[in-house]
């Protein structure tokens, strides 16, 4: 089972990194969601996976006995889930407010804090916010004015 998980989380991690590398901050957010799920899954599998049998002490007993699933990774994941939710919420608001203030979710064009150096050798990406050709017809559809 754990071997299967190893490959599954590998694919999840690869997918999340691909999303994180996008200059569209919405996709970066997706990458963040995927990455935290992958991380939790890793912690869970690394602690060993046992079917059924949650770590609950039966009535009349004083300690866990017999076969039970490892409680430690579960405690760690519970913390991790909540923290990554907090992180996601903050990042989401940041992107949203950034869009309101700057009118873009393209991280390449958010250069207020670090304006490009006059002779920066890295070329500006070609019109990063450009409409995709296929979408040109749909541009009338305006979702949420940035200053609303």
């Amino acid at each position: 089972m754990e071997t299967l998980v190893a490959f599954t989380v590998g694919v999840m991690a690869a997918g999340s990194v691909y999303l994180l590398l996008s200059h569209n901050l919405v996709r970066v957010l997706f990458g963040l969601i995927l990455l935290s799920n992958a991380a939790n899954f890793v912690i869970f599998a690394a602690g060993g996976m046992t079917e059924g049998l949650p770590p609950l002490i039966g009535l009349g007993e004083k300690a866990l006995t017999g076969v039970y699933s490892n409680p430690l990774p579960q405690a760690l994941i519970l913390t991790a889930i909540v923290i990554s939710f907090g992180l996601l919420a903050f990042a989401l608001v940041l992107v949203y407010r950034g869009y309101q203030e700057l009118g873009t979710v393209d991280s390449d064009r958010m250069r207020l804090a670090e304006p490009p150096h006059p002779d920066q050798d890295i070329p500006e990406p070609e019109e990063p916010g450009r409409l995709h050709v296929r979408d040109a017809s749909r541009r009338v559809e305006n979702l949420g004015s940035p200053q609303s």
Partner: peptide, 24 residues
């Protein structure tokens, strides 16, 4: 948490540009 994430993100996404608004 997953339910919350989907709902909240979906709500905010509605106010953000489409994915297709970006060049591939």
């Amino acid at each position: 948490v997953e339910t919350l994430v989907v709902i909240i993100v979906a709500l905010v996404l509605a106010r953000l540009p489409r994915l297709t608004a970006f060049a591939r």
